[in-house]
């Protein structure tokens, strides 16, 4: 009896070399963009930033110290240390002192860095606040920042070229 052998085709390997090339390029691009400095410029979670047409660049030699102001808490630094609440910022001198000491410490660290490396970095305060926060708290924080040697204060916003037109439409 003759045996019938089924013919098996050899499976060809999927060439993933080109795919790997693309992924490598994307990976390098993403790693370059997602840096710690870029993290400071991103929109914090659960925060609604105001919209502006203006987009000003950070000064070339600026090193930022971040303050996030939520309706229920104030977070300072990239480590998001809780400094207190908005109410405490206005009413409690100790809370203001904590924030002031932190900012001054950061400013002095930048000054030490300049002395050590011969650079000319300027401390910049970057405030990220929810648009529904009353200005009195922002004012308080700006005062503390200015008192702690922060000459440059930046407010994080979302760029929207059409916000004025959108406002006009909503009114009509």
């Amino acid at each position: 009896m003759r045996k019938v052998r089924r013919k098996f085709y050899e499976t060809t390997n999927l060439s993933i070399t080109s795919l790997l090339d693309i992924l490598t390029i994307i990976l390098v691009f993403l790693i370059k963009n997602v840096s710690m400095e870029a993290q400071k410029m991103t929109v914090p979670e659960n925060m609604s930033l105001p919209t502006t047409i203006t987009n000003q660049e950070l000064i070339d030699n600026g090193l930022t110290v971040l303050v996030k102001i939520y309706p229920d808490r104030i977070l300072i630094g990239t480590d998001n240390l809780k400094a207190g609440t908005l109410q405490q910022l206005v009413e409690d001198a100790e809370t203001r002192e904590i924030i002031y000491n932190y900012m001054q410490h950061e400013a002095s660290q930048i000054a030490k860095l300049n002395t050590r490396k011969g650079t000319n970095y300027q401390p910049c305060l970057l405030i990220q606040a929810d648009k529904q926060i009353p200005c009195q708290y922002i004012t308080q924080l700006v005062k503390i920042g200015a008192g702690a040697s922060f000459a440059n204060i930046y407010f994080s916003t979302l760029q929207d070229q059409n916000w004025l037109q959108a406002t006009a439409n909503s009114v009509q």
Partner: peptide
């Protein structure tokens, strides 16, 4: 294994990328 690594890292990085354009308004006290 390299592909597995990439497939894990790239979605993670894509999540961290912000689509909206973050801007800044400056005040100077100097």
């Amino acid at each position: 294994p390299i592909m597995n690594l990439f497939v894990t890292i790239i979605p993670f990085l894509l999540v961290m990328i912000v689509i909206s354009q973050v801007a800044m308004v400056a005040l100077n006290f100097s």
